[in-house]
Amino acid sequence: MVPMEYYLVVSTIMMFVGMYGFFTRRNLLAMLISVELILNSVDINFVVFNRYLFPEQLEGFFFAMFAIGVSAAETAVAIAIIINIYRNIRNIQVKNLNEMKN
């Protein structure tokens, strides 16, 4: 069996790649994808902890399933808003979203 640490290394890398992408990408869709990476790394964490450390209960699996569902709903709303921005200004670059600077 693959040791648990390997999975945790993968999920940690995903988490911080997502964070890096969120702060450096200047396109709304790319930022959304980065955030999805963070959420997926969390799902991996939950499933791995459940499978390796507490196999007698299913709490982690359930949490992962709910997290996937909720993040899908959030992504749907986010994409709807991004489409709305595209309709308004024909662009989804962050640098064009500076209407409200003082």
Partner: peptide
């Protein structure tokens, strides 16, 4: 624009929080 900023930071923050909870 405000909606996009709100939902992206909400997603990011819930990602962070879930990581902690995990």
């Amino acid at each position: 624009e405000a909606g996009a900023k709100y939902i992206l930071s909400a997603l990011f923050s819930s990602g962070l929080m879930l990581y902690g909870i995990s």
